[in-house]
Amino acid sequence: MPIRVASRRRTAASLAAAFPGAEFVDVTSRTAEPWVRLSPFYPHGGIPVPYDAGVTSESVEGIWQALKVFQDVDVDPARLGITAMKGLKRTVRRYGPVRGHRTGLHGDRLLPYESARRRIYLPAYRWVLEHRVADLVERIRDKSDVVLLDYTTNGDVADPTSPLSHAALIQRYAEGRWPREADAETA
């Protein structure tokens, strides 16, 4: 049976009705061990930062937030060292419109949103799936009927209308359908 993805915000009754007999695995930062380790906020440490040879981050979200560039605020290397799973986000409410994601802490290019997803987020999260939580991915593959719960369910890297669901990425990785990381755009 395929791995499925649903919103963590749904009620238990709604989930049970939609997926009778399924096992539900919450993969958000608000769940317990061991599944919390699948969250992009989890501080695994040693995660390579794309475009920055030798630079690592505690979390995938730390990389994403560190390389984000706003109208008046550039990269924030301090995000790479955060281990608390809180205080990682850098928002437009505080810093203004996002201009893009820098190709490394000292890179000279800004990647637009989709390119940044493909060239920064996907490689970083895939590295975690392969090097830090391969055991959990195998446990998910071994389940006969499983639904991964996340706050968002968008598994389309090219869809900017909602945040990308890491549960959907886990699903695609476990099923051998990882999204294309590189794209034609050179930004």
Rank of each mutant, 00 (worst) to 15 (best):
I140R: 00
S59P: 02
S7W: 07
V75Y: 01
P112A: 12
D108L: 13
H106T: 11
V25R: 12
Y95I: 12
V5M: 09
D142V: 00
L136P: 01
V133N: 03
D150R: 09
A53Y: 06
P112M: 12
L88Q: 09
L169M: 11
S57C: 04
T91N: 10
A182R: 15
A124E: 01
G155E: 09
W127N: 01
A32C: 09
D26P: 02
R180E: 15
R109M: 14
S144E: 15
V98Y: 11
R141C: 08
V147H: 13
R132F: 00
D74M: 01
P77R: 08
P123Y: 06
A116M: 08
R180D: 11
I140M: 03
V147Q: 14
G62W: 00
R119C: 04
T153G: 10
A182I: 06
V75L: 07
R30F: 11
K89C: 02
V98S: 14
P179H: 04
V146A: 06
V55I: 15
R126Y: 04
P20D: 13
L149H: 06
G45C: 07
Y113D: 13
P43H: 06
A78W: 04
Y125V: 07
E61G: 07
P97W: 05
V73H: 12
Y95V: 07
S59K: 03
Y125S: 08
R37S: 00
Y151V: 10
A53C: 08
M1W: 07
V36Y: 03
V5Y: 03
L149G: 03
A13H: 10
V73R: 13
A124P: 02
Q71E: 15
P2C: 03
R10Y: 11
L15T: 08
L164R: 07
T31D: 03
D183T: 14
R94G: 01
A84G: 05
G87M: 09
E181K: 08
R4Q: 14
V75S: 01
G62Q: 02
V55Y: 05
D183Q: 11
K86S: 13
E130K: 11
V146L: 06
I63P: 00
V60C: 10
E58D: 07
R4C: 08
T153K: 11
E114S: 07
V49G: 04
D135K: 07
A16L: 13
E23L: 12
A18R: 15
H44E: 04
F70Q: 05
D72G: 03
A18L: 15
V157S: 06
A168H: 09
G107C: 11
R90W: 05
L136V: 03
T161E: 15
P2Q: 14
K68S: 07
Y173N: 02
D183H: 13
Y51D: 08
Y151A: 09
H106M: 06
P97M: 12
R93Y: 05
G155W: 05
I3Q: 01
W127V: 00
E61R: 10
V75H: 01
Y51S: 06
R177T: 00
G176K: 09
G100W: 03
S7I: 07
R79Y: 00
H131F: 03
L136A: 06
P2D: 13
A187S: 15
A32F: 05
